[in-house]
Structure formats: C-alpha cells, structure tokens
Amino acid sequence: MRVSSCVAPILAVLLLSGCTSPAWDDHDYGLKAAQSAESAASSLEIVRLAVRHEDRLTTSYLKTLFTEAVKDLGGVNSQFGGVQPPSPSADEVRGRLLDLTGEAEDQVTSLLIQVRRDGIEDPEAAVKDLEGVAAKLRAFEEAHQ
C-alpha cells in the first residue's frame, strides 16, 4: 500500500512526459518548433550514419533502426502538429517545419521499404538527400532559438 501510494504520482509523471504543453505566445511556439526540428535532425543523422555504413550492418538491424526512426519522426510530426499556433505568423513557422519533417519522414520510409525489399539501391544518393534535409532542419533550429 505504501508502494501503491508512490506508484500513482510516478505513473502520472510517465504519462505526462509523453505530452506537449500548449504554446503561450509566438516565442514559446518558436522554441517548441526549434526543439522539434532538433529531435527530427537527430533522428535523421542516425539514419544517415546507418545508411553510410549499411554494408557493415545486418538487414534485420537496419529494419528495426529505420522503423524506430519513422516512428520517431512521425511522433515529432503529430506532436508538433497538434500544438495550436498562437498567431497567423506562427502558421508560417508551422508550415515550414511540418514540410521539412514530412520530407524527412518520407525519405526514411522509402529507405525502410528498400531495406525490406532487397537492400538500399543507392546509398550514396540517400546519404546526400538525408544530409540536405538534416542541414535544413539544423538551420531552422538555429533561426528559431
């Protein structure tokens, strides 16, 4: 019973940490956008590292890694997309970021499909594409901090 009395608050913390709080003003919204961009860029970097060394990794490992990345990016998308932009100017920030993360998600999804089929077709090109989007996300993050 002492145990159960500590379980409740902890479960609450666990549950709450999965949610995003609302944005109070443009600045706050910008910070949230930057954070989302950072986490998306981080996912992309890891996918890029894996693609660059894909010949050294096993298929089932790549599959798991990419599935997780798609899930992560999707999570960023839906979580940030769910925050109400506080003003019309924030709408524009929202649009730009969601375009970028959407593009990232598409890229990784297509890589996942290739891995599931018969391996990544053109790793070098994929690395370049991933680098491009990641760089844009980093730039976005810098601009909104």
Partner: peptide, 22 residues
C-alpha cells in the same frame, strides 16, 4: 560530433556495427 541524440537500443548499438561490421 553530429549532435545526434540516442533514444532507442538500436541506435545505442550502431557504433559497434560501424566499428566492427556485422
């Protein structure tokens, strides 16, 4: 160096794959 944060077990094992292969 590439400012990537890890949050899954798969990601945490990536360095071993890159360093040592399959």
């Amino acid at each position: 160096p590439v400012k990537a944060e890890v949050d899954t077990l798969g990601q945490m094992l990536l360095p071993a794959g890159i360093g040592l292969g399959q």
